[in-house]
């Protein structure tokens, strides 16, 4: 086996995992703390990508646009939380699913009206477009940066959740919501904060991926299911679980795509392997989830009751 390709694939898997973590962290927190099944979570992923891409084309600076886009995505999330989302927290899950699906339709259409249906291809600044060569191994700088940003956010979230008072409330909220509100904590403020922070994380993921793919309508709907799979495998409400599951799924999905046909070709003819491998590799993450849920119905790291 060629090691340089294997390393390249591992980097790609890691990058996908990190992006999934950015999405899933917000999802798992809103799910765990506010008990909100938010299908429209990935709409902020799309929104972040569109805002950042159009700002980059306009200002010419990726970094400036990134900062502005984070602020704007956060503002959008805040407005939506105040106007609508906070009224959904106490509803049954299925009602939440219906309402947040309605939000997806609205946000997708608004983006269509505002930016047109074509989507935006966004350039990457030259200083991020390079590669690092270590012997045979070629590492694209931008992908390394995505991984670095993702890991940084993961560390920040870890510190926030494990070592601050807010984090304590968040953890308490994930395990016992009624207790937290009984303590006299301003639960509304906490909820707004968590929702905005989670949405910004999703938006950041969109901003990170836009220079690789492009900003397009419905890009969120493609990844939201995978993000939910991450949340479920990791255990609802668990940041640690989301992190582990995101990296696991990123790796399995990428390596499955890359090597499954080779593996299959070892014990069946090439034709069958070429047909079966893409189908099975697309199924892998669902197989993984079904197996994990069959063995551990609460996921890998269910939050403990405190």
């Amino acid at each position: 086996m060629d090691y340089s390709i294997l390393v390249a694939q591992a980097i790609n898997g890691l990058q996908l995992g990190v992006l999934l973590f950015l999405l899933a962290s917000g999802l798992t927190l809103t799910f765990g703390i506010m008990d909100l099944v938010n299908l429209s979570h990935a709409s902020f992923y799309m929104l972040g990508a569109f805002i950042c891409a159009s700002l980059t084309l306009w200002t010419g600076s990726f970094l400036l646009s990134l900062v502005l886009a984070i602020v704007l995505t956060g503002l959008a999330a805040l407005v939506i939380e105040l106007g609508l989302v906070r009224r959904l927290y106490t509803l049954p899950h299925l009602d939440q699913v219906l309402a947040t699906f309605g939000m997806i339709l609205c946000l997708d259409t608004l983006v269509h009206i505002f930016w047109g249906p074509a989507g935006i291809v966004m350039p990457l600044p030259a200083w991020l477009n390079g590669q690092i060569n270590i012997g045979e191994i070629v590492l694209p700088v931008y992908r390394l940066m995505i991984i670095a940003v993702g890991l940084l956010v993961a560390v920040l979230l870890y510190v926030l959740v494990s070592h601050t008072r807010t984090g304590m409330l968040i953890r308490a909220g994930a395990s016992n919501r009624t207790m937290v509100s009984a303590l006299g904590v301003d639960i509304k403020l906490l909820f707004s904060g968590v929702f905005v922070a989670g949405s910004v994380c999703a938006g950041l993921a969109g901003m990170m991926i836009a220079p690789i793919t492009e900003a397009s309508i419905g890009m969120g709907n493609e990844i939201i299911i995978t993000a939910f799979v991450v949340v479920i495998i990791g255990g609802i409400g668990s940041i640690k679980g989301a992190f582990v599951a995101a990296l696991l799924i990123g790796m399995i999905d990428t390596l499955g795509r890359a090597y499954l046909d080779t593996v299959f070709a070892a014990f069946m003819d090439t034709e069958t392997a070429e047909t079966a491998a893409p189908a099975i590799s697309a199924m892998l993450i669902y197989l993984l989830m079904a197996v994990i849920l069959a063995v551990r119905p609460q996921g890998l790291f269910p939050p403990r009751l405190r």
């Binding site: 694939q9 790609n12 898997g13 990058q15 996908l16 991926i209 493609e222 995978t226 990428t254």
Partner: peptide, 19 residues
């Protein structure tokens, strides 16, 4: 390489391009 298509289509081709 036949990549995943449909509602959750694959748009990151880095693995395939490396191959």
């Amino acid at each position: 390489d036949l990549t995943k298509w449909g509602a959750d289509a694959q748009l990151d081709f880095s693995a395939e391009l490396a191959k």
